[in-house]
Each structure stands twice: as structure tokens, then as C-alpha cells.
């Protein structure tokens, strides 16, 4: 069995080499399609990473009037917590707000000083509400407008990040859509080109195939070289595409402000190296085998 496999693989490499430019064409188109697919993957992955990051910072702060008692606020907290779309509610007391304010403004003694001169705490107690998902803030704010404690609310700080999130969401969805169409298109083209390459291989080997059949070569033995040829196209293309991805990620990572990203693009690439390579190898060999099989079904009469 190993003997047959060895002979077959040697034969496939020879075919690959002898097909010359055809192999180059097949591999290049495959590289483009794999590269597109993986770039798409990287973009949508980092895109949703950014989204998640921003979403975590989003919240609704409800500021209560200064005369509202702590008891009433905790009642409102319990009320909000019972609301199904709310993930968490955090109470920030007047004192805590003052402390935060002070620590945020340590470098500006004038402000702190004037605050002290005021004698009393001018800041309001608040509840910081986080929704389970960003598109639920709308209903949370609608709920607040109808809440039993709406009279106690001084103001609601909401909507600052809403637009950014929506925009990001739209962009990621758009990239996904266009990228998928492009990937499918390129995959289709590479199937066609590999199909054609294998067809020509079958044609140039028709004499050998005829002899093989006459001397009783098993069908597997006749088919294997073509399948292997397809696999070779896929494997070579995915390795090269991985290299291309390495270069392009490294290049763009320099120009991408790491502030926006929770992690560097390049480290994302390194972290997902196995996944990316595996994905490309899987897609590449699948495309190769698939197109070989169509070509064989059409042109290899066995």
C-alpha cells in the first residue's frame, strides 16, 4: 500500500512540474482565493473584537436628584435588575462619585480646591446600567421614561456611543457580505482553473491511462495521481497565502493604532496561526480534490 502511495505521489509531483505554467496559474488563483478568505477572516475577527471592546465600555448612567434618599435609589436598582434586558446595575454613591472625580482630577489642584471650598458634595448619586446587548439600550431608556422612579431622575446619560456602535456594526456586516461574495467568486474561478489543469493532465496521459486499464491497474491507482495533484495545488497555495498574510499583517499592523484594537493585529495572526493555516489547508485541499473529481468524472472513463 505504501509502495503504491509512494509511486503515486512521485507521479503527481512529476505531473505538477511538467504542467509548468498551468500549475502556476492554478496555484496563483488558489492563492488569491485563499488569501481573500483569510483576510476576510482576520478583518471580521478583529472587527468584532473592536466591537466587543467598545460595547463593553457602553453603559447608561442614571443620575438621581440630590434629594433622593439612598433607600429609594436601591429600590430603583432592584427594579432595574428585575428587567430582563439588563445585565448589571452598579450603584455609585455621592461619596464614591466625589472620590472618582478627585482621582480623575489629581493633576488639577485648582478644581479639587474649589470643590473643597464648596464645602458640600455637588455630585449626584447614580446607577450605572449595562444591557445584555448593545441594541437593547433603546428599550432600557424607554423603560426608564416610564419607570416608577422617573420623578427622581435628574438626567440620563445615554446615546454617546450608540452611533459609533451602529456604524461599526454596519461596516463589519458590509465587509462580511462583500468579502464572502468575493471569496465564493475566487473559489469558483480556482475550481474552474484546477479542473482545466487536471483535464489537460488527463488528456496528456490518456495513453498511459489506457495502458493502465488494459494491464489491470485498479481504479484507485488510476485516480490517485489526479487527486494528489489537486491536493498539491491546495497545499502549496495555502502555504504561500499564509506567507502573504504574514507580510501584509505585519505591514498594516504598524499603521493601525493599537488604541482602537484590544490587541495588535500581528499578535492576532500569531495567536491564530494554527487555525488560519489549518483553515487554508482545509479549504485549499478541498478545492483541489473537488475540482479533480469533477474533471475525472467528466474525462476519465473508468
Amino acid at each position: 500500500m505504501f509502495l503504491v502511495l509512494g509511486r503515486t505521489i512521485r507521479e503527481s509531483f512529476r505531473n505538477f512540474w511538467r504542467n509548468g505554467w498551468l500549475s502556476v496559474a492554478a496555484v496563483s488563483v488558489m492563492i488569491f482565493s485563499l488569501f481573500t478568505i483569510s483576510v476576510l477572516f482576520v478583518i471580521t475577527e478583529t472587527g468584532s473584537n473592536i466591537l466587543r471592546n467598545v460595547q463593553e465600555r457602553v453603559n447608561v448612567s442614571i443620575y438621581f436628584k440630590s434629594d433622593v434618599s439612598e433607600e429609594n435609589i436601591s429600590k430603583a436598582k432592584i427594579d432595574l435588575e428585575s428587567y430582563s434586558e439588563v445585565a448589571s446595575v452598579e450603584y455609585v454613591s455621592k461619596e464614591k462619585a466625589l472620590e472618582d472625580f478627585k482621582s480623575n482630577n489629581v493633576n488639577e489642584p485648582a478644581i479639587v480646591k474649589s470643590l473643597e471650598e464648596l464645602g458640600e458634595n455637588p455630585l449626584l448619586a447614580s446607577l450605572v446600567v449595562k444591557a445584555k446587548s448593545p441594541d437593547q439600550y433603546e428599550s432600557v431608556s424607554a423603560y426608564l421614561a416610564e419607570a416608577s422612579f422617573k420623578e427622581d431622575i435628574s438626567r440620563v446619560n445615554y446615546g454617546k456611543n450608540k452611533e459609533i456602535i451602529e456604524k461599526l456594526n454596519r461596516i463589519v456586516a458590509e465587509i462580511k457580505k462583500i468579502g464572502s461574495i468575493l471569496a465564493v467568486l475566487l473559489a469558483g474561478i480556482s475550481i474552474l482553473i484546477i479542473f482545466n489543469t487536471i483535464r489537460i493532465t488527463i488528456y496528456t496521459h490518456r495513453q498511459e491511462i489506457e495502458v493502465m486499464r488494459l494491464v489491470g491497474a485498479s481504479n484507485t491507482f488510476i485516480r490517485l495521481p489526479f487527486i494528489f495533484e489537486g491536493i498539491i495545488y491546495g497545499a502549496i497555495a495555502s502555504v504561500i497565502s499564509m506567507g502573504l498574510l504574514f507580510l501584509s499583517v505585519r505591514f498594516t499592523a504598524q499603521y493601525f493604532p493599537s488604541v482602537v484594537l484590544p490587541e495588535n493585529l500581528f499578535s492576532f495572526y500569531l495567536k491564530n496561526f494554527a487555525l488560519l493555516l489549518g483553515m487554508q489547508l482545509a479549504i485549499g485541499t478541498f478545492l483541489g480534490i473537488f475540482s479533480s473529481i469533477i474533471a475525472m468524472r467528466k474525462y476519465l472513463r473508468i
Binding site: L3, R7, V211, M212, V215, S218
Partner: peptide, 11 residues
């Protein structure tokens, strides 16, 4: 030899 190779005969 080819006829033997294709049927998986040992070298």
C-alpha cells in the same frame, strides 16, 4: 514493469 507496478507488486 509498469504493468506490475500498477497492480502493486513489490519492487
Amino acid at each position: 514493469a509498469y504493468a506490475m507496478e500498477v497492480s502493486g507488486a513489490p519492487t
